[in-house]
Amino acid sequence: MTPAPFTYYRPTSVADAISLLTEHGDEAKLIAGGHSLLPIMKLRFAAPEVLIDLGGIDDLDHIRVEGDEIAIGALARHVDLELSDLLRAEAPLLAHTAGVVGDCQIRHRGTFGGSVAHGDPSADLPASLMALRGTIVVEGPGGRRSIAVDDFYTGFLETALEPDELVVELRVPRVGDAPWGYQKFRRRGIDWAIVGVAYQSEPGAGGIGLVNMGPTTLRASASEAALRSGASHDEVAALAAEGTSPVGDGAGSSEYRRHLARVLLSRALAGRSTT
């Protein structure tokens, strides 16, 4: 079904995109790969008056080393992350996670920045960004600022982005071959995760991100604290659902989701990943 009508802009620079955002404010939606927005526009659940297509900006899809970090342009597509030799070597959790998003066609269109900015708690990539303690670089009329991933998600489909800001880059530390695991539990290959767990080990510690365990992407703080105190993996996994508030729906009751979080964390800690 065709979306409701809108005014379409195709800026060719970030600066132009920001001035359009400033001009149109809440009436405007950004579109990059379009795989979060177009599906709901087709069903007319969303009908923005103005659509600002970032597809005309051609210098925002980099994946490169910058000091101790990997810098990834917001318009890098999931497939670019998935198949990046650099990312596979320096932050393999993120490359793997990009490869379990949606299907090939979706990964050919969807962008890392779009997935992060959408703020959907059932998305995979934000959980791995959480496990990696990444930062989100945003740009607005006043220039750029960096937001830690822990400060970025403020509510269901809500982020710390101002209406006139857009995500321009994602940064994660270079972790090399340190152990990691990504568990995405779903009935069918194309389903969103019923629950997902991202784990990235750190010296004497570890980062753990949770998918679909509350209104936002969550950090498993109790488990992380247990890891730092030297607890066994079983003890760490047992705390996976502490402080979470998963919803119950047809795919899983909240009790089932809490149970899954514990089981999946145990598997992720063992370095096991789902494909």
């Binding site: 009508p5 005014t7 802009y9 195709r10 060719t12 009908a47 008056e49």
Partner: peptide
Amino acid sequence: MTELAETTNGTDTAVAA
């Protein structure tokens, strides 16, 4: 920056440009 088209929002006035 290119404005490719302006159409009116709202299904009741869909004079599509």
